[in-house]
């Protein structure tokens, strides 16, 4: 077996060697207020048929690597939702920059 991980997209991390020896940090924390609000915003926009969870994932997966790993979980969601709302012409980039 090669010691080098096969090529994979940034989010596609099942079985990667780079995490093999790191224990799972048992962080039980539920989302904070920021996370819950981002989560709620996604649900509302999905209910209004303005985005799908699949689009959310696509735009998370498209975040450039240094930023992807620097952002927290719900910061990645926020980035993705903002990208989608601009992509769809619902808001302007300068509105949310």
């Amino acid at each position: 077996m090669s010691e080098i991980d096969p090529q994979h997209a940034i989010h596609d991390i099942g079985g990667l060697s780079r995490f093999r020896c790191t224990p799972v940090e048992r962080d039980e924390a539920p989302p904070d207020g920021f996370g819950k609000r981002v989560d709620a915003l996604r649900q509302v926009l999905a209910a209004k048929k303005l985005m799908t969870v699949d689009e959310l994932r696509r735009c998370i997966e498209a975040i450039p690597e240094p930023e992807y790993f620097a952002l927290t979980y719900y910061e990645r969601w926020l980035t993705s939702i903002g990208t989608l709302m601009v992509e769809k012409g619902i808001v302007k980039a300068e509105d949310i920059a």
Binding site: D27, A29, P31, D32, F34, G35, R37, V38, L41, L45, L71, T72, Y73, Y74, E75, L78, I81, G82, M85, I90, V91, K92, D95, I96, A97
Partner: peptide, 19 residues
């Protein structure tokens, strides 16, 4: 679970306000 940065809180507020 690192707290979101202040600029992210502000960004969320701006997005919600625009919507």
């Amino acid at each position: 679970s690192t707290p979101a940065r202040p600029e992210s809180l502000a960004r969320l507020d701006r997005l919600v306000a625009a919507l």
